[in-house]
Design a binder for these strands. Structure first.
Lengths: 211, 211
DNA sequence: TTGTCAAGAACGAACATTCGTTTTAAATTG
DNA sequence: CAATTTAAAACGAATGTTCGTTCTTGACAA
């Protein structure tokens, strides 16, 4: 179809990206050949190469959108008034992660994005933006907790954000690779982890029960 | 060398694995060709294929050893008597992670292992073992904290282990991709995170009720 | 027409792997 | 000990396949 509307072009582009994402999730990025993408998109090589000049460009376009949804979602939760308890916040995010990491979920691409980011400079920038984006929300959460008097004034919210951040990739990994993590169990874990007593020097562990 | 000692064979095997690991860390697993491994090992194709029947077999052999060191290290720390404070424990592990994730560090392979585990069943088993191995230590830590009276008796140590687990991959990711995480900052973050007050509903304008 | 889009055959490079040959050190013999 | 045999070990060019990409060709709207 020659001389076609801009909408058509944009739709084609999306059609290709959707096909690529489907393939990447189903087979993995490296195991996906361009021919797989052609087939999934129902387009020819020539057509696809009209919209993207290389496979790398497609990978980059998709990697940039892996956790956009999560970013927005967390951003809203963090702004919730009153400030949500940490376990509540984490559970809600975890639930979203579960929803996004099913058989067709985009979160399945996250580990691949991390791995690719280590060796492709352009991709690395995208992934960096994604990670920073999430982390900034966590830092903002910590800041609000300080403001609400839930954390001491001398708290470093950036450091707190960096530490809390790990809970989610940790959850995702266990979910994707071991498939034995649930948001509710994570809530219990976070509730156990959020205790000053864990920072105290511990007593020796005999069979004797202290109280 | 024909009719050669078992030690020689074992050394050759290690020589190949070392070369492969070097290549995988330097270029990434997928970007490493067998020819790269031949060159790095200073061996011919035939020689390498005498010891490993495929590239996949080499990848599997290496993936199985990525975090063995960390596993042992954490295992010892967890058994420390008296029980170490959480922030102390995390900092020590983080320091080890830093040591193992430099330009030649094996921890650089972790994200690749995670990604590969999603699509290769054999590899997945190795990575599962690694993850479970670490998690078991964290659960044991939680158990000891309960025994020492640092955590309430009704704590679910497995859930706690799953939650705490994430701190380390989270740290590693930030270290590898953003290169802006340090053990000391992580300590500060963990100290901020370990507070019951984070579990209470907060308020900016509204009063709060207890749990 | 004229300019743009799509098709799909074709291409060349890169890849993992194979295999016939050569080298080598241990084993065997005299 | 020295000469010879033997089979494992190593070599590396060749193989066949697969891949990402390009190119030629035709189709169709303006």
């Amino acid at each position: 179809m020659p001389r076609v509307s801009p909408e058509h072009l944009e739709r084609r582009r999306q059609q290709i990206l959707d096909a690529a994402r489907t393939c990447f999730i189903r087979e993995g990025v490296h195991a996906t050949s361009m021919q797989d993408i052609f087939a999934e998109a129902g387009l020819s090589a020539g057509a696809v190469y009209r919209y993207f000049k290389s496979k790398t460009e497609i990978i980059e376009a998709i990697t940039g959108t892996v956790i956009g949804d999560l970013h927005t979602f967390l951003g809203e939760l963090v702004q919730h008034d009153p400030v949500l308890p940490l376990d509540e916040l984490v559970v809600r995010v975890a639930e979203r992660v579960v929803a996004l990491s099913g058989p067709d979920g985009t979160m399945r691409l996250a580990p691949q994005a991390w791995a690719l980011a280590m060796y492709d400079p352009d991709l690395r920038r995208y992934v960096q933006q994604n990670v920073v984006g999430l982390r900034v929300h966590w830092a903002e959460y910590a800041r609000r907790c300080v403001a609400a008097g839930l954390l001491p004034p001398d708290t470093d919210p950036v450091a707190a954000g960096k530490a809390i951040f790990g809970i989610i990739p940790g959850f995702l990994l266990q979910r994707l690779i071991l498939d034995d993590a649930s948001p509710e169990e994570l809530r219990a874990g976070v509730r156990a982890m959020a205790r000053e007593s864990l920072l105290a020097a511990g007593a020796t562990t005999d069979p004797v029960q202290g109280a």
